[in-house]
Computed example of a mutant assay.
Amino acid sequence: MKKVLFATTALVATAGVASAEVAVTGWAEMGLFGGDNAMGMGIETQFFTDIDVLFRMSGETDNGLTFGAGVDLDESTNDNGAGNTGGAFNPADDGGAFVFLSGNFGTVTMGDTDGALDWALQDADYGNAGSIADDETAHAGFLDTYGDGAYDGQILRYDNTFGDFGVALSVEMDDTGMMDTGFALGFRYGMDLGGADVGFGVGYQFIDVSNYLPGNLSSIAIPAQDFDGEYDIFGISASVASNGFSANIEYTDFSSDTAGEEEASHVSLGLGYTTGAITVSANYGIWDYSSDVAAFDGDITGFGLAAAYDLGGGASIHAAYGVSDYSDLSGAPAAFDDLETWSLGVALSF
């Protein structure tokens, strides 16, 4: 997820809808990236380019109901960065598209949006400086999905706020009809303590999927049945920001007893600091896995570092480094050990 602020160009439609508006934003990045892959082989230093365009549409009915939609062209074309593009917009997985309705009753959003648990929790990238290749958030210790997208990625979420308190409920359906509908419930609370912004989040999510791997296990060759069935996910987070400093801590627990007993827990910490045009940030995460189905136990850890210098006018220089460590995880392929990535470049927001 890119952390660059977007400038907005608004196009106002005057025919038929008095308050309709279309906003076009975007960013472009260029630079270098490299590192070492999990097999101990170097990733050749190479060029990195990435471009994204986002459309946001909004309007208002005569009685004050607001509505809108959006689409992310980067996601809708399966652009994975580094010049790797392919595929077409696929409504089946939303491709970065969402639609919402909002009023005194709250907000209803459908499409590529956060589930209630993800909506409630603050990730470890709080105060993140950002990077062109997301190295600081792509490591195995980072968590930001909390079970969202376990089915087809289309989520229906209702959320509402009451002063400093917010609540959300979300549903994700299985298109095949073979698994139970997934749902989530989330709560968050924010307050100002003498100039320090403090936030808390807590939530629960249920999913019922085959071969669901919590965290970054998709690249490890383990039997499909090792992580299978119904999962209960509980998460809680706390964050604070004051005078340029930011900090966040998060805990998430995954549990399943359908195909044996699989357990996973995740803890993360994020720190950031901004002074003038300079922002620096760091985050650390650890996964603790255990499974009765196969000898698959131990920890996966990772950390990320990022720095940015704001040149003004929407341009900034970014550098980042990320490390993933699988060495404590039994049951993983013997060649699997550490993964290191880095990137350096310029981000341009429009």
Rank of each mutant, 00 (worst) to 15 (best):
V53G: 00
M30K: 14
R56H: 06
I43L: 13
S58Q: 06
D36W: 00
D52S: 03
F47T: 06
E44N: 14
L54D: 04
G34D: 07
N37Q: 12
G31H: 03
T49N: 05
M41Y: 11
G59C: 00
G34A: 11
S58W: 01
F47Y: 06
D36R: 00
W27Y: 07
D52R: 03
M39S: 13
L32M: 13
E44A: 14
F48K: 03
M41N: 15
G31Q: 06
M30N: 13
F55C: 08
T49M: 02
V53N: 00
E60F: 01
A38H: 08
M39T: 13
E60R: 14
F48D: 00
T45D: 12
R56A: 08
R56C: 00
Q46F: 01
L54C: 05
D36C: 04
M39G: 15
A38Q: 10
G40E: 12
V53A: 05
M39W: 06
T49V: 09
T45A: 09
F48G: 03
G34F: 07
M30Y: 06
A28T: 06
V53D: 01
A28E: 06
G35I: 08
N37S: 10
T49A: 10
D36L: 00
F47N: 12
A38M: 05
G35C: 05
T49S: 05
M41I: 11
F55K: 03
G35Y: 03
A28G: 15
F55S: 03
F33K: 14
M57G: 12
G40I: 01
V53Y: 04
I43V: 13
G31S: 06
N37L: 06
F33V: 11
T49H: 00
G59P: 04
R56K: 04
A38F: 10
S58A: 03
F55T: 13
F33D: 10
I43T: 12
I51M: 04
D52P: 02
G59R: 10
M57F: 11
S58Y: 02
M41Q: 15
G42M: 07
F55M: 09
T45P: 09
R56E: 01
M41F: 09
Q46K: 09
A28H: 05
L32T: 09
E29N: 07
F33R: 15
L54H: 04
G40M: 05
Q46P: 01
G35P: 08
G31K: 03
I51A: 04
Q46D: 11
F47W: 11
T45W: 04
R56S: 04
M30P: 08
M30L: 12
G31A: 00
E44Q: 14
